[in-house]
Amino acid sequence: MFEARLLQGGLLKKVLDSIKDIITEGNFDCSPNGLSLQAMDSSHVSLIDILLESEGFEHYRCDRNIPMGLNITNLVKMIKCAGSEDIVTIKCEDKPDNVTFLFESKDNDKISDFEMKTMTIDDEHLLVPDQTYTAVVKMPSAEFQRLCRDMAAIGDTVNISVTKEGVRFSTTGDMGTANITVRPNPSGDQKEEERTEVQITEPVSAGFALRYLNSFTKATPLSPTVTLGMVPNLPIVVEYKIADMGHVRYYLAPKIED
């Protein structure tokens, strides 16, 4: 069986908010290491990779690997019924037809349980290689969110160019063009999460659809910083670390000149 108790139930709401615009269903894989999800959007342009490590839960028991296929829209509806301060317990049997969500208020004066039907989902797992990124940019997540929103007001595609001087975001649309350059500032007086850091072995430049990048920024409440990893002619990775728990990562295929 599987049973996991999460003290900060609000975290689940944030995780679901970060994926609900991209996928409508997914297999949550319960394993002794934790709860994970890998799923692509319907057009197979972007991929979500979530890991919530077992150590991040107050109680975690998983005897064997269990794929828990869930409709994300329905899951959002159910998790919305939990208070943001509630403790959430997720439970299911080894071959589950249903998953139980137990919500306990912080003061222990209200207990609710919801049961949700599972579904069989064809796995479309991809092997994402462990790679060394040519360019890694760490920046405040709110800054990245603002930047993607501003770029999307002008164009559909953003070209991201990373050099050791900084990261340049450029777009073109019917009304004109926009360029925003973010410079690294690691030696300033800012707190760590307010810094922009750039590590590169060689300059990288590629174009990406802003519609997807904007959806990824729904994960902003999960982390004060976001990390972009790029390799020439490969998908970009956009990672939000969840403190003491794991991550939400998005992979996005580039646009390439024919």
């Binding site: 692509m40 057009s43 197979h44 342009v45 972007s46 991929l47 797992h125 991809l126 092997l127 994402v128 290689p129 595609t157 174009g207 659809a209 490969l234 998908p235 992979y251 295929a253 580039p254 646009k255 390439i256 000149e257 024919d258």
Partner: peptide, 14 residues
Amino acid sequence: AASQRRLEDFFGAP
């Protein structure tokens, strides 16, 4: 113009 690639063009099946 640049065309949108799919993830399968880069990542294989496990």
